[in-house]
């Protein structure tokens, strides 16, 4: 019972309808970010397909590990042990310093006590191809592992990005170098505050709106300041590469290199900051402050 010819008017109607739905969906997604729930469900549906797509990359990685020479592995092991020793030694003073810091803060009656996240979890970066127009990676943990929207993600080197899309078994992480991402930072040396904006494909950060006389120098380390309420304070973000003030400009042009290199990272750490544990009813997605003037900035 096949009709030989497809009915043109019906198809046109259907097409116009779908066109309309697509347009509404794009506006709802881009302008108002209200499609996170259905996005999560569909991403969960896509999980098996992504798993198959990720498989060769994963196999390749496992295979290179298998054929790695024994001497190479021993060498690597030795280096890791050395690092571990070093870290353990440094850690001995940690508890004492923490207590001391708390006492001093209490003396100063400072409210800015930097609390350490209570929970970390290692997540693997899934090798699936993502929108080439944004800088994102996908990780293998989702809402089932208590991951939440706006969750800070760090690598062993420093701040990496934040969770922007979430499904049951995976999450998509926007890198701090994406052009729609910005986070508040503080210069470790001078205490100068600034905003670090992603510069897109160049993989760098720019610090806009810094006065020409701001105390910021080449080689300075920038830490997260915690003001944006997404990233906890005190994690390394970037090192300043160049500072210049073009003639006739009010603001300095500051370029910084992020400490976490997304190209080399295979595993990242998810952080559960203290406040998220204490006040679970507080909608954490509010941290994704939508700057009305600038379409859909994160932080």
């Amino acid at each position: 019972m096949n009709t030989l010819f497809v009915k043109a008017p019906a198809i046109t109607l259907r097409f116009v309808l779908l066109l309309l739905i697509s347009t509404v969906a794009m506006v709802a997604d881009h302008r108002y970010r209200v499609l996170e729930m259905p996005r999560g469900w569909l991403l969960t549906v896509m999980q098996p397909i992504q798993f198959v797509a990720d498989w060769p990359a994963q196999r390749w990685h496992g295979w290179t590990e298998v054929v790695a020479a024994r001497s190479h592995l021993l060498q690597e092991n030795k280096a890791l042990l050395e690092i571990n020793q070093q870290l353990a030694t440094e850690h001995q003073q940690f508890a004492k310093l923490q207590a001391e810091n708390r006492r001093l803060n209490e003396l100063l009656q400072s409210i800015a006590t930097s609390s350490l996240p209570t929970r970390y979890r290692l997540a693997r970066i899934v090798q699936v191809s993502l929108d080439p127009h944004t800088l994102q990676v996908q990780i293998n943990l989702g809402s089932q592992a208590d991951v939440f929207l706006g969750q800070p993600v760090i690598s062993s080197a420093g701040v990496f990005g934040q969770v922007v899309h979430l499904s049951r078994y995976s999450a998509q992480v926007l890198l701090i170098t994406d052009s729609s991402h910005a986070l508040p930072v503080i210069d470790q040396r001078s205490g100068q505050r600034a905003i670090a904006r992603g510069d897109g494909p160049s993989g760098l950060l720019r610090l806009p709106f810094l006065a020409a006389h701001a105390d910021i120098r080449e080689g300075d380390l920038l830490l997260s300041s915690g003001l944006g309420k997404v990233f906890p304070a005190g994690y390394p973000v970037a090192t300043v590469r160049s500072v210049s003030t073009p003639v006739g400009e009010k603001f300095a042009e500051v370029v910084a290199v992020p400490v976490a290199d997304p190209g080399k990272v295979q595993e990242v750490l998810l952080l559960w900051p203290d406040r998220a544990v204490q006040t679970i009813e507080e909608p954490v997605t509010d941290d994704l402050v939508d700057d009305q003037a600038d379409d859909g900035d994160h932080e």
Binding site: L18, M26, L42, V128
Partner: peptide, 30 residues
């Protein structure tokens, strides 16, 4: 296979690639 199938396939690509929801759906159905 018509505009409907194309649209659904496009939607899945949008979600899986973390892109704008509706973009691939619109292009493929067109």
């Amino acid at each position: 296979v018509g505009v409907g199938v194309a649209w659904v396939a496009g939607l899945l690509v949008d979600v899986s690639s973390s892109g704008l929801i509706g973009l691939h759906a619109m292009v493929l159905s067109m």
